[in-house]
Design a protein around this nucleic acid. Structure first.
Lengths: 249, 249
DNA sequence: AACATACTTTGACGGAGCGTCACAGAATGA
DNA sequence: TCATTCTGTGACGCTCCGTCAAAGTATGTT
C-alpha cells in the first residue's frame, strides 16, 4: 500500500533532481546549453526517463520559470513582512524582481522568453497551469498592496482605472526595464545608469502618477529599501543583497 | 565599370527578396516556421546562397527587427508631423509601437526576443550595428520630444533624472505592457482591458509622474490620438488603424 | 521457487534543421 | 578559344529532438 506513496516520492525526488540539474546547466553555461541529453547524462538516467517527466524542452523551461517565480514570492514575502506603508511594500516587491534578475540573468531571460507564445504553446497544459498559479500568487501580492492602499486612503481609484490595471503598470515597467537592461550593450543611444536606480526612479514616477501616497516627494523610499535589504540579508545570511540593490548604510 | 554597381544592385535586390520572404513566412506560419531551407526553396535559390547574405538564422531575425524598427520610425514620423505639444507627440510615438505590435504580433515577438543575449550573440556584428542604428533613431525621436518639452517649460528635470532615463521609462512600459499582453491568455489572475487602453493610461500616469505638462488631468489626449490615427489612416488609405487604436469619431 | 504479469528504463533510430565546402557552372578577360 | 575568377549548389556531417520496441525490474500468484 505505502509502496505507492514511496514510488510517488521517488518520482517527485527525481523530478526535482532533473530540474535542479537543468537550472545548474543554465547557470553554468546558459540556456543554449540546456539539452535533454545533457540532463540525462548528468543525472545518469536515459533520455526516455527525462521524457517521462517533461513532455519537451519547453516544458522544463516553464517548470523552471514556475520555480523562479516561487523563489521570487519567497523573497517578496520575506521583505514585505517588514512593517511599512502599502507603497513601501510595492516598491520592495518590484525590487525583489530586480534582485532575482540580477542574480540569475539566464533564468530571468527564461522568464521573459516564456511569456512568448512559441514557448508556451509547446509546453504541457499541466505545466502551464502551475506557472499560472505562481503568476497568480505574485500578482495577488501586488493587488493586496493596492487594496490596502485604497483601504487606508493612500490611493483613490479614478473611474477608468481598475485594481488590475494598476497592477499591470508596475509589473510591465519592471519587466520592460529589466529586459532593456539585458540588451544594454547593444543599445548605444542611451546611457544606462545602474539598473536599480532606473527601476527605483521610474517606479516612483509611475506610482506618483497614480497619486499613491506618500508621494516620492514626501517620503524617502531609499531608506525603506535599505532597511528591507538589510532585513533580507540577515534572513539569508547573504550580505551581497545590499550591494545588488545599491543601498549603503 | 558599372557592372560592379549592377552586381551590387542585384545583390541588394536578392537580400531584399530573402528578407521579404522571411517576413512573409513569419506572418503566415509564425517564427517557428522560419528555416533557412524554406527561404531557399521559396526563392528558388540554394541554402548556400542564403548563407552568402546572412551568417545564420539569428542574423536574419535581427535584420527583420531592424526593418521592423524602420517601419515603426516611418509610422512615428508620419504621426509626429501632426502639430501638437511634445507630450502629445510622445504619446503618439508609444502608440505607434502598439500599432506595430498589434498588426504584426509575430514580428513583435521577434523584437522582444532579439533583446535577448542568446539571439544577439549569434548574429553578425555588422547586422547588430544596423539594428543599433535603428534603435538609435527611435530613441532620438523620444529624446527630441523630451528636449522640446524642457525647452518650452512643459517639463523640468529633477537633479537625479537625465533625459536618457526619462526616455527609458516610456520605452520600458511600452515593451513591458505589450509583452505581457502577448501572454494574457496564460495569466488568469488579471483581467486585461484592451491593450491600447492600458498603454494609454499607464503612459499618462508615468508622464504625469514626470510632471510633464499638460497633465492628463488638464488635457484630453484621447483627442490627440484620434486625430493622429485619422491622419495616418488618410496617409496610408488604411482605416483599420483607427480601430486598432480604439478611437472612434 | 517458479512463473506470469505489469510496470519502468533504455538507447538506437528517424527526422528536422543548421552550417560547410568541394565542386560545377557561369562570367570575364586575354 | 582557352584561362581565370567569381558565383551558386546541394550533398554531407553534425546536433538535438522526440519515439518506441525491446530489455530489464518489480510485484503478485500458485
Amino acid at each position: 500500500m505505502n509502496t505507492i506513496t514511496r514510488k510517488q516520492r521517488e518520482l517527485q525526488q527525481r523530478e526535482k533532481l532533473f530540474l535542479d540539474t537543468a537550472r545548474q546547466v543554465i547557470r553554468d553555461n546558459g540556456v543554449s546549453a540546456l539539452t535533454m541529453e545533457v540532463i540525462a547524462e548528468i543525472t545518469e538516467y536515459s533520455k526516455g526517463t527525462v521524457y517521462k517527466h517533461f513532455t519537451c524542452k519547453e516544458d522544463i523551461m516553464c517548470a523552471l520559470c514556475a520555480e523562479g517565480v516561487e523563489y521570487l514570492i519567497s523573497l517578496c514575502s520575506q521583505m514585505t513582512e517588514f512593517p511599512g506603508s502599502p507603497r513601501e511594500k510595492s516598491i520592495i516587491i518590484a525590487l525583489s524582481y530586480l534582485l532575482y534578475a540580477e542574480r540569475y540573468p539566464e533564468e530571468f531571460d527564461l522568464l521573459v522568453a516564456s511569456k512568448n507564445a512559441n514557448i508556451r504553446q509547446k509546453a504541457s497544459p499541466e505545466r502551464l497551469a502551475v506557472t499560472d498559479e505562481a503568476d497568480q500568487k505574485i500578482t495577488q501580492l501586488i493587488k493586496d498592496q493596492i487594496h490596502a492602499a485604497i483601504q487606508c486612503g493612500d490611493l483613490t481609484l479614478t473611474p477608468d482605472a481598475t485594481v488590475d490595471q494598476l497592477c499591470l503598470g508596475p509589473w510591465a515597467i519592471s519587466l520592460g526595464i529589466t529586459a532593456l537592461y539585458e540588451a544594454q550593450d547593444m543599445i548605444s543611444s542611451i546611457e544606462f545608469p545602474p539598473l536599480q536606480d532606473t527601476l527605483y526612479q521610474q517606479l516612483n514616477f509611475l506610482l506618483d502618477g497614480y497619486q499613491w501616497r506618500p508621494l516620492s516627494t514626501e517620503f524617502d523610499y531609499k531608506k525603506t529599501l535599505a532597511d528591507a535589504a538589510l532585513q533580507l540579508a540577515k534572513n539569508t545570511d547573504d550580505f551581497s543583497i545590499s550591494d545588488t540593490l545599491g543601498v549603503q548604510e
